[in-house]
Amino acid sequence: MTIDEIIDFVSSLDGVLAISPTAGDPWPELSWGDSFFYYSPDGVVPTKTQPFATIVTKDYPDDQRSHLDRPDTFRVNIAAGKEAFIDRIGHSPKQTVTEEVDYSVTDTVIPHPIYGMGGWLAVVNPGTRTDAATRELLQTAYDRARSRYERHSESDSR
């Protein structure tokens, strides 16, 4: 999968706000070239929630274990949740031991190097082995974000 294929897939889901900052945008320079996906049917960046998925194209100061500084390397990060995490990784997110994971491996579903304990999964350069899994996990993260939004909307209207 390419970055554009992932952006197109996620953006096609109802109510998704996709942000891909570039030079000159109001977003921090560090975020330029990356993409952030929110469930936001009103098209406004939510202030009280994180994206349900992101694409990062470079190492961040506190997140360098995927070695995204390699040419043509990116990572899709997915807030899959505990059940999907267990299904894909085989144990609870709380049992993730970061030293035992090669976070630079490509085309493999892995715990997120920073947020794995929160049920986030990641794939560096998704390819033929992980195309279907990546799409499924993105759909799961979208469904979770949409459900969370709807629950909060219902409680706010009471």
Rank of each mutant, 00 (worst) to 15 (best):
E29D: 14
M117E: 12
Y103L: 01
V101K: 01
A23F: 11
D59V: 02
R144K: 07
E136V: 02
I7N: 13
G116W: 05
A141D: 04
S92Y: 07
E100H: 10
H91W: 00
V76C: 11
S104N: 03
T47I: 09
S35D: 05
D25R: 07
D72W: 08
T57V: 13
S12T: 04
R146H: 12
D131I: 01
F74A: 10
T140L: 00
P46K: 03
T73W: 02
V45T: 09
S153L: 11
E5V: 07
W32V: 07
L17R: 11
S11V: 05
T57Y: 03
I3P: 05
D72Y: 11
H152G: 13
S153V: 12
I6S: 08
S20K: 13
I19S: 08
E154S: 13
Y38Q: 08
G90S: 11
F36W: 09
T47R: 08
T57R: 09
T130R: 00
D143I: 02
A133T: 10
W32P: 02
T98R: 14
W120F: 04
S35L: 07
L137T: 02
T134D: 08
G127R: 01
D69Y: 07
R129Y: 03
T22Y: 11
T130A: 00
A79I: 03
F37Q: 11
V109D: 00
V123T: 06
P26E: 00
R135W: 06
A79R: 10
V105T: 08
H152D: 15
H67K: 04
G81D: 09
P126G: 04
D143V: 06
K58I: 02
T108P: 01
R158G: 15
V16G: 14
T140N: 00
P28N: 10
E83L: 09
M117L: 10
R75W: 07
S147N: 13
S153K: 09
Y149W: 10
L13W: 05
A18S: 15
A18N: 12
D107W: 10
V76P: 06
S104G: 12
Y142T: 09
I78K: 00
V101A: 02
G15I: 04
I6P: 09
A80C: 09
V45C: 03
F36K: 02
R151L: 14
A79L: 06
D102R: 01
A84Q: 05
A80V: 10
W120C: 01
Y39L: 01
A132K: 08
A122K: 00
I55S: 04
E150G: 09
M117T: 14
D59K: 04
G90T: 08
S31A: 14
N77R: 14
A133K: 11
S155K: 10
D156P: 03
P26S: 00
T54K: 14
P46F: 01
E83P: 03
T106E: 12
D69K: 03
P111H: 08
